[in-house]
């Protein structure tokens, strides 16, 4: 996936400016930066979620398989590029099974067998199957926070996206649940392209192969995670990762 000169606004306020970036296939890309730097806005531009906010505006291109997603219907773009949010947001009135099946049902899959298979696979991929296999008809909100977040990941995976975007997926979770999600991210990259936004530098260092550092709506530096953390080229990056601000 290739991002080409993306800028985004909230009303008159410019949130990110002229960002160009590549995300490698089947790898994990991290985006770090202090809060308010525009990293969430950037990731929301990658599956056209940014424009669902009133008065929000985007310019630039996001190429997936060589085609600009802004030339395609937003609905099909979001099916190919899934997203997981900061706070777990399962549908509380649906069972665990229905939560995972929701996306498939939207796309017209009705056969119980196909749904069963997809739910099983997605829950397994999300490392949740063993914990919920006996309670698939329980409400999605009956799970713990970490389980809810993995349920949301399973729900996003069920429609077989090519890219999975994660917007600070662990910020509402405790350390143990966080560790589980990080393991999961590691496993998922063989099947998916992952982009993860985090304000936790250790997390980026642990899971991401490449990392981008953003500050005040601009992309400051991008590179292999190890190099970025060990030998940053920009002074700003260095002062951020050494904890001098942020």
């Amino acid at each position: 996936m290739h991002v080409d000169k993306i800028s985004a606004w909230y009303g008159p306020k410019l949130a990110i400016q002229d960002i160009s970036l590549d995300f490698e296939e089947h790898s994990v890309s991290g985006i770090i930066g202090p809060s308010g730097c525009g990293k969430s806005t950037l990731i929301r531009c990658l599956n056209r979620m940014h424009e669902t906010i009133p008065k929000a505006k985007v310019e630039g291109q996001v190429l997936l398989d060589g085609q600009d997603i802004y030339d395609q219907p937003a609905v099909s773009v979001r099916r190919r590029i899934g997203m997981v949010f900061q706070k777990p947001n399962p549908f509380p009135t649906m069972s665990i099974y229905d939560n995972v099946a929701a996306g498939l049902r939207l796309n017209g899959v009705r056969e119980r067998k196909k749904l069963d298979v997809a739910v099983l696979e997605s829950l397994k991929q999300a490392a949740l199957w063993d914990e919920v296999k006996d309670s698939l008809d329980k409400s999605g909100s009956s799970l713990s926070g970490g389980q809810q977040q993995r349920l949301c990941i399973a729900r996003a995976l069920a429609v077989r996206p090519e890219v999975l975007l994660m917007d600070e997926p662990c910020s509402a979770l405790d350390p143990i649940a966080t560790a589980k999600i990080e393991d999961l991210i590691f496993d998922l990259k063989k099947d998916y392209t992952l982009v993860i936004v985090t304000h936790n530098m250790q997390q980026a260092a642990r899971v991401a192969e490449t990392t981008a550092f953003m500050y005040l709506g601009k992309l400051i530096e991008v590179g292999r995670t190890r190099e970025l953390f060990e030998r940053p080229r920009e002074a700003l990056t260095e002062s951020y990762i050494t904890g001098r601000f942020g």
């Binding site: 609905v75 706070k87 729900r155 996003a156 429609v159």
Partner: peptide
Amino acid sequence: SQREAALSLGATRWETTRL
């Protein structure tokens, strides 16, 4: 967050409202 959950699965506006 509920609307976003539905939208990010590729739901149309009406489907988002329903789901």
